[in-house]
Nucleic acid binder design. Structure first.
Length: 477
DNA sequence: CGGGCCTGATATACATCAGGCCCGGTGCGGTATT
């Protein structure tokens, strides 16, 4: 038996494992497919990096974001690992050709599910010697696979064609739905080990505020604070509007972050936030995955999150350093309707596709220009699945219903008068876990004063460059 | 889905209301073109 502890010291310089790591690594080294759920973002990459060093073949890591891949690549390179590459659209044509021709020489290969499904790429993967196939942020299969990023549902077929390599799925979100989807899509015909750790984040206080004037609430809250925080919005415009407003009245920088920003702006703002040059970020759900900022003291939801899964992901970005932090949802009746709309919207896009049923390939070419991106991808998938419309329509209806139900449950959480922490834990199906904390939530311990400010926190001066940048953006619209 | 806003009709000189319209998240990709 391999001494994993010795390997940990040798390759990473650590003396002991963090929670969940040893169990996961031992399982992989025994040759068992593994599904691991760890609550925070820290320490998950070691779960595949260490076994990778102890096995002779190559490790493939499927990752949802280019920025995530690049983080991991540079982290490995910093450790002195040269044999690492990310395959995605940032590679230019000739580099990509070169990399594919020499892919056998790389130990760690990061790739997006879309890139993996390009024919010329996948053909190369078939000839690799894959000792471990990792799906990082595996909840994306359930969250995005059914509509937003259908390539995630191709992984099942990819694994088949690669002769079922040893597979590891990693995530921080594991409701029954997510687990079911991952089981079905990745481990359908195989036994696998499952390691699920509590979602409870003891150092986060949970609070819900029903309020008419959310901006006023924010002003009151923020004027007495001096710590880094994120405010989540379900609309890009509103995130920008509130960021501008707060930037005027607060003595430090507030910026906004959403999917319309260019890649360069995203990187810049994220870096400034990580280095405390920007103190508060008004963001949509575009922000956060893979962001390792330890000292975020509060996460406020200006709008209702669309599900407890996403709420836990987003609020969980507070207090990575283990210090007392707070998560507040500002709720106003009707906040949920945008989610219902957006869920309908993606449903209707699928429904619009149904009129293509029965048409020949030649017929379909005529419509090609009028189809949305996502519709084209569905057509692509349907073709690969021999035009199984029946299955397609069934999925369409059940996924729509599932998403709506999740938003409704988020609404129940708001109204709930019992312990919020316990509600979250129950939702993630850890019913046997009973919590009781001195500092817990607004329902359990409303009288406890939450002091999460650093005593010696100094107010950094405003970055003039950045506020100018924000103003420029506003006037360009 | 549903709140907010504009428009036009009504009925009568200033306001009210019905009806229509608008708006809203997440990312891969080598799309074709100035």
């Amino acid at each position: 038996m391999i001494d994993t502890k010795e390997a940990l010291k040798k390759y990473f310089g650590f003396d002991s494992f963090k929670i969940g790591q040893k169990e996961t690594i031992d399982s992989i080294l025994r040759g068992a497919d593994t599904f691991t759920v760890l609550p925070t973002g820290t320490g998950k990459s070691l779960c595949y990096q260490l076994p990778s060093y102890l096995m002779s073949g190559q490790t493939v890591i499927v990752s949802p974001l280019i920025s995530l891949m690049e983080d991991q690549v540079s982290q490995l390179r910093q450790m002195g690992e040269k044999s690492v590459i990310a395959i995605n659209s940032t590679l230019d044509f000739s580099t990509k050709k070169y990399v594919l021709a020499h892919l056998k020489e790389f130990k760690f290969i990061f790739i997006s599910p879309e890139a993996l499904n390009q024919e010329e790429v996948f053909n190369v993967f078939k000839r690799l010697n894959i000792s471990l196939f990792v799906i990082d942020e595996a909840h994306c299969i359930s969250e995005w696979g059914h509509d937003f990023r259908p390539s995630y549902l191709q992984l099942k077929e990819n694994l088949n064609q690669l002769n079922q390599p040893l597979t590891l799925a990693l995530t921080a979100t594991a409701t029954e739905t997510v687990k079911k989807d991952i089981e079905q899509e990745l481990f359908a015909t195989r036994d696998f080990n499952e390691f699920i750790y509590s979602v409870n984040r003891e150092n986060i206080y949970y609070q819900v505020e029903e309020c008419e004037d959310k901006v006023e609430y924010l002003k009151q809250f923020l004027l007495t604070k001096n710590s880094p925080g994120i405010i989540y919005f379900s609309s890009k415009k509103e995130a920008e509007r509130v960021a501008m407003l707060l930037n005027e009245i607060l003595p430090y920088s507030v910026a906004f972050y959403h999917g319309d920003l260019s890649g360069a702006d995203r990187i810049k703002i994220q870096q400034q936030f990580i280095h405390d040059e920007i103190r508060i970020l008004c963001a949509t759900s575009a922000f956060g995955m893979g962001v390792n900022k330890e000292n975020i003291r509060f996460v406020i939801h200006y709008h209702l999150p669309d599900s407890l899964e996403n709420y836990v992901q987003e609020s969980g970005r507070a207090g990575r350093d283990g210090k007392q932090s707070i998560s507040i949802i500002l709720y106003q009746k009707g906040d949920e309707r945008i989610h219902y709309y957006l869920q309908d919207e993606s449903y209707h896009q699928k429904k619009d596709l149904l009129f293509l049923k029965g048409k020949t390939k030649e017929d379909l070419k005529k419509y090609d220009n009028s189809l949305t991106d996502i519709q084209k991808k569905w057509l692509n998938m349907l073709e690969k699945n021999n035009w199984n419309w029946e299955k397609f329509e069934q999925n369409l209806n059940s996924k729509q219903f599932e998403k709506r139900t999740k938003t409704q449950k988020m609404g129940f959480y708001i109204e709930n008068k019992s312990c919020r922490r316990q509600s979250i834990i129950n939702y993630f199906n850890n019913h046997y876990e009973k919590v009781s904390q001195e500092i817990c939530c607004d329902n359990c311990t409303p009288d406890k004063i939450i002091n999460f400010e650093e005593k010696d926190g100094t107010i950094l001066k405003k970055e003039p460059f950045n506020s100018k940048e924000l103003l420029k953006k506003l006037f360009l619209i």
